[in-house]
């Protein structure tokens, strides 16, 4: 059966890159004794795919991988066994059965992602940042130049920015919440939005200025025009 695993990544594990996280899960699944399926051929590999690579330095509460397994007692048992063999900084949140058809693949489903963006040093922001943010968000179009393999192209961020709001932490530090288009078609990274904000408000972000935390990944069960976002986790069922 097909399984979707949701996990969070925090603490020192944020420095472990995507390819190494894949290797990490291959070994963790063996340690936990999950009955995973292998591809055919002389050098079989685990049937495993990740929804969306998370950049080095980012933390997350909503990471996903899909696997295919033989037998398993229950969702609860698998979560328990996996968490018993995790390194500090990775926690498995759920282990759910997903529909068997090909279209249910996490990687192809990803349509949007939620992020929280904080500032390592809030003083990089201009004093009137709240006002500037409102003016930034109320533009009809947010035009940026995006570097691609073929060169540069102009892009309007506005339709790809599903939600954007400015709030505060418990200690009064600014937090920006973003729901961004994600996945293979129009993947928007939070840095891109913050750079555009900087350009609009007349400040620039030094390197490593942002602390980015991914909150959730979504599939779109609506249409392109009228999207309806459901978390990847909600597409699976406990067993």
């Amino acid at each position: 059966m097909k399984i979707r695993i949701k996990f969070r990544k925090y603490g020192v594990m944020k420095f472990i890159g995507h390819l190494d996280i894949m290797r990490y899960f291959q070994k963790a699944i063996r340690r936990a004794g999950i009955d995973i399926c292998y591809s055919a051929g002389f050098s079989p590999h685990m049937i495993m795919s990740f929804a969306s690579p998370l950049g080095v330095g980012l933390t997350s509460d909503g990471e996903y991988l899909d696997i295919e397994i033989g037998n398993e007692l229950s969702s609860a048992s698998a979560v328990h066994r996996l968490n018993a063999v995790m390194a500090e900084g990775v926690e498995v949140l759920s282990f759910r059965r997903i529909p068997d058809e090909k279209a249910s693949n996490a990687m192809s489903l990803v349509a949007a992602a939620d992020y929280e963006v904080r500032f390592r040093d809030p003083d990089v922001l201009p004093e009137n940042y709240a006002k500037a943010w409102d003016s930034f968000c109320s533009q009809d179009a947010i035009l940026i130049t995006k570097k691609t393999k073929k060169g540069e192209r102009e892009l309007d961020l506005k339709p790809l920015l599903y939600q954007a709001s400015l709030g505060q932490d418990a200690d009064g530090a600014p937090v920006i919440f973003l729901r961004l288009s994600s996945g293979s078609a129009d993947n928007v990274k939070p840095e891109l939005v913050l750079e555009a904000f900087g350009a609009h408000a007349g400040f620039s972000l030094p390197e490593f200025a942002l602390l980015i935390h991914r909150k959730e990944l979504y599939a779109n069960s609506g249409t392109t025009e009228e999207p309806h976002f459901v978390s990847l986790e909600a597409l699976g069922e406990e067993f």
Partner: peptide, 21 residues
């Protein structure tokens, strides 16, 4: 979520060197 083990190196250093792991 950003709790956990202490590190001798700052984020800036770890993010600017090869293979922080």
């Amino acid at each position: 979520s950003d709790t956990g083990k202490k590190l001798a190196l700052s984020d800036e250093i770890l993010l600017s060197i090869d293979k922080p792991a």
